[in-house]
Structures are given as structure tokens and as C-alpha cells.
Simulated scan of single mutants.
Amino acid sequence: MLHDPHGLIEAQLPLDRPHEALVTAVLAWTNPTLAARDYEQIALQLTGYARALAADVTRHVALPKHDGRSALADVILRETNRRLSVPTAGTARCVQNRARLVRALYTRLDRLTEPLPATA
């Protein structure tokens, strides 16, 4: 499990997307019936991974000021901080919200790491 509320291990974590399948599964739920403690454990895993992804996005934000990707990354990081400040709850809704956050961070990280198109 990757529960690291103080962000002590995120700098050493290889982000090979082990939680992508979990995110996909959680977002596909239509009427889950797990115990509250199971929802809490999944939410903690996704929270820890969201923190690690946010740290990776932060490391990639050091882009030139004229690069719009940096501004968009700042927006997602502010939203991430706001959403992670809300305590986890033992509900499917909470888990799905954390999964959406991880998915948004994956998307932002992909955009930050893709090369800019060459200009003619």
C-alpha cells in the first residue's frame, strides 16, 4: 500500500502506473457493495498514489514561462491539493473521486512529458 501522508517516499517512487488498472476498475463501478473499510483502504491507496503523481507533476513543471503546459499543471496541482485536503470516507463516491484525481494527474503528467511539436 502507498499511504504516505507526509510525502516522504514519493521522490524515490518509480511511477510505472501500477494503479492504472485500479483506477479503471473503480471508475467502472455502477453499484458496488463493499464494506466501508474496503472503500477506505482503496481510497488510502489512491490518495498515496495521487500524492506521488502530484510530486512528479511538480518536478516536471519547471518549464519555460511561455509554455502553457506549466500553467495548466499549476491548476491541476492546486485542485489536487484542495481535493486531497478532504478526508477520505468509506464510500464508493470518495473512492471514485480519488480515482478521477489520479486519472487527471496521469493526463497532466503525460502532457508535461510529451515533446512539443516542432515549429516550421
Rank of each mutant, 00 (worst) to 15 (best):
I76C: 07
L84A: 09
Q12I: 12
L105S: 02
A55P: 07
Y39F: 00
P32T: 10
L2Q: 05
T47L: 07
A50N: 00
Q45S: 08
P115R: 05
D4N: 06
A104Q: 03
D67M: 13
Q41K: 05
Y106S: 08
S85G: 11
T113D: 02
L105G: 03
E20I: 14
R69S: 04
L63W: 03
L8D: 14
G48D: 07
P18S: 13
P64C: 13
Y49M: 11
R93V: 15
A50V: 09
E114V: 14
L2M: 12
L13K: 08
A21K: 14
E114C: 07
Y106W: 01
T80I: 04
T107D: 06
V57E: 00
P115G: 03
T58P: 01
A25P: 01
M1N: 10
A104L: 11
V102A: 11
R51H: 02
Y106R: 10
A118I: 09
A73L: 00
P64K: 07
R59D: 09
L13F: 14
A120S: 12
R69M: 13
Q45W: 05
L112W: 12
L109T: 04
L46F: 12
A71R: 09
A28L: 10
Q41H: 06
R51V: 00
A104N: 12
R103E: 00
P87Y: 02
A89P: 01
L105K: 06
R37T: 15
L105C: 06
A118L: 00
L27W: 10
E40W: 06
V61Y: 08
E79G: 00
K65A: 13
D4I: 02
L112R: 03
S70P: 03
L116P: 08
P5L: 06
D74P: 02
P87R: 01
P14W: 06
P5K: 00
A54D: 07
L53Y: 02
R100W: 06
S70F: 03
L8E: 15
N97P: 08
L116M: 10
E114F: 12
S85E: 11
Q96C: 13
E20V: 15
Y49P: 04
L53T: 07
R100V: 08
A28I: 09
H19K: 02
L13P: 02
L8F: 14
T113I: 06
I42K: 08
L22W: 12
V57M: 11
A52Q: 07
R108A: 10
D67N: 14
A52N: 01
L116K: 03
T119W: 03
P64G: 10
A35C: 05
K65M: 10
V57C: 02
A71D: 09
A55I: 01
P87L: 08
D110H: 05
A50R: 06
I9A: 14
L13C: 13
E114M: 13
N97M: 14
D38I: 12
A71I: 09
